[in-house]
């Protein structure tokens, strides 16, 4: 299961860190990315940050997630008319 939700690093302690998104915090491994620091946005899979992403791309994804489903609902209902 791939979650595309970007999470922000709020704590770094060597190889592990805490990431946060929408008030949910998770402990993650940081071994798969270089130079992880507090404030970085990452994609998380199976308890690891698997890729660092730019803040503007993280914002874009968060907007897509919040608006996407509702907007596509429009398309689908338009289709049925």
């Amino acid at each position: 299961m791939c979650l595309g939700i970007p999470m922000r690093i709020v704590e770094v302690d060597g190889d592990v860190g805490i990431v946060e998104s929408g008030g949910i915090k998770r402990k993650v491994g940081l071994m798969l990315i270089d130079g992880a620091k507090v404030g970085d946005w990452v994609i998380v899979h199976a308890g690891f940050a698997i890729e660092k992403i730019k803040p503007e791309d993280a914002m874009e994804t968060l907007k897509l997630i919040s608006e996407g489903a509702a907007s596509l609902g429009d398309v689908s209902s338009g289709e049925e008319k």
Binding site: G29, M31, H45, A46, I50
Partner: peptide, 15 residues
Amino acid sequence: GFETTVPTIAATIIS
């Protein structure tokens, strides 16, 4: 799992 999961296991083995 596929290649997304593989490095998480590799990192765990190293740990």
